[in-house]
Each structure stands twice: as C-alpha cells, then as structure tokens.
C-alpha cells in the first residue's frame, strides 16, 4: 500500500475514528472494574446472573483437557459449537471438529473428519478384523501460550488475553490470512460473513461468566474437560495429575494449552 492509498483510507476513516474514540474511552474506564458487562451490542442478554465480584483475568489461565478414550465421536460438541458461536453450517468452517483414526493391521492409517461427508469419499473399511486400533480425536484451537498466529498478524488484531485465550478483533482484522497460514493446527478459517479470521475462543463469553464452553457443556462422556491451570483444584488439573499428557506438534514450540490424555502417536 502506498502513501496515496494510506491517505485515502484516512480520509474515509476519520469520521469513524472519532466516533470509536468516543466509544472506546468509557470502555477503558471499565476495563478494571469487571469485564462481564457488554457495553456494545446491548441486544444480548445473558441468562446467568452477573458473576460475583470483579473478574480478574490475571488470576486465570484457561486450558482444556481431552481424554481420547472417552470420546465416542457423537459430534454433539461440533454442533453445539456451531450453534453457540454462529459458525457457518457448511462443512468448511469449524472451530472444533472430530477426527476418526483407523489403524489397520498392515499399519495403514486412515483418517477422516467425521463432520465432513463429501460425496466423493467412500465409507471407511468397517471390517473389524482388519482394525488394529481405532479412536476419535477432538480438535480445536490449542490456545497456544506461544501462538504463531499472534506473532504474524500484521495489525495486531489477534492477541492473547491475560487469562490465556487467543482472540480475534473482528473489527480490525484486514483479512490477509497470514494467521491461517501460520497456524499449524488449521484451527482458523475465514468467516464468510464477517470476512475476517475466526477460531475457537474457548467460548470466552461463557467461561468468563462461569459457564463451561459449549462443547464441554454438551459432551456426554466428559471426554472434554475445561479448567483453570492457575486453580489448585480444577477438573483440568486433576486430569493432568492422573494421566500422561501429550500436546499436538510439540516440536513447533507453540506450547498448546489443549492437553490430550491417551493420545496416539499417529495423531497429527
């Protein structure tokens, strides 16, 4: 972009800029006094009472645990996520999805995403005799402590919150999609309506109010465990105490905060 375009953009943006300035200043005042009130979009009402006392993001660090051996691949989580977060229904946009791994006796690994049924793909071989092992793996944004997407965003529209969640500012994302390229887990997609990058937020609007993320709420077998890593006794900390834990693609040094128990080495 050259200078001329920059100035042109400014001329368009100035009236709007002043307006946001006015809007943003009261927001700044409330920043410390409790983050659970929406100043904008007043149409949204919450069913939960305001959580007690001020919410201090510094005192939390959220993560998720996933017990592979408990996942039955029912996709309740995927549907709940799409409903809760306005994710388009088409099978190209997911904040979370389920993979099925089938490893046959000749060590051939077949993977499919059970939420994507394309007309072309054949049903997986269901001959039980040939299966060495098979299991489901839920996937979602790993909310990395060292996130490559945040590193590459040219305008700083994606960032880590103090409580350890990576968010996207949909008002400032320019749609360059460098973050989509940089994410090793393909957890990001371009939302076809907002035309901005979108991804799992751990249902930030729920967890700050004391609710569970939608996927964890509906999981029938408690294969998904949500919790606070800073808490001494959370279900997540308990899970990590009782299991050998693995994360996805540890060699990339992203420090994921989605922890898998009983994860198979074939899972990438």
């Amino acid at each position: 972009m050259n200078k001329r375009q920059f100035l042109k953009g400014l001329i368009l943006f100035f009236p709007a800029g002043g307006l946001t300035g006015v809007l943003a200043s009261p927001v700044r005042g409330k920043e410390t006094s409790g983050a659970d009130k929406g100043t904008e979009a007043s149409g949204a009402k919450t069913t939960q009472p305001q959580s007690t006392g001020a919410y201090d993001p510094e005192r939390h660090n959220y993560g998720m645990g996933i017990e592979i051996d408990k996942c039955i691949g029912c996709s309740r989580c995927v549907e709940a996520c799409k409903a809760e977060n306005n994710v388009p229904q088409e099978p190209f946009f997911f904040r979370t999805w389920i993979e099925r791994y089938v490893i046959t006796k000749d060590r051939e690994v077949t993977v499919e995403s059970i939420n994507v049924k394309s007309r072309g793909t054949r049903e997986l071989a269901q001959d039980d005799r040939e299966i060495l092992r098979s299991f489901f793996v839920p996937k979602l944004c790993n909310q990395c402590a060292h996130p490559p997407c945040v590193q590459v965003c040219p305008v700083g529209a994606t960032f880590s919150t103090k409580d350890g969640v990576v968010l996207v500012d949909a008002n400032r994302c320019i749609g360059c999609r460098y973050c989509v390229q940089a994410c090793p887990y393909a957890a990001r997609y371009l939302h076809p309506e907002t035309k901005t990058a979108d991804k799992c937020t751990f249902c930030y609007h729920r967890v700050v109010k004391g609710l569970l993320p939608a996927c964890v709420e509906v999981c029938p077998t408690q294969a998904r465990v949500f919790g606070d890593l800073k808490s001494k006794a959370s279900r997540l900390v308990r899970l990590m105490r009782m299991n050998k834990i693995h994360v996805l693609k540890p060699s990339l040094n992203t420090d994921p905060k989605v922890y898998y128990a009983q994860l198979d080495g074939e899972v990438r």
Binding site: L12, V155, R172, I174, G175, C176, Y178, K195, T196
Partner: peptide, 23 residues
Amino acid sequence: LLHLSQPMRSFEIFLTPNLTSAM
C-alpha cells in the same frame, strides 16, 4: 491490497503495526 478480504482496513497496518509480524 486486492487480496485482502477487508481492503478498506489496510491502513491499520500503519496505525498499529505488530512489530513481531514480518508482514
């Protein structure tokens, strides 16, 4: 510029450049 899905916001790159971003 044309490739951006939000080209009208491209000037953001000058307003709040993220210093860790190569782009």
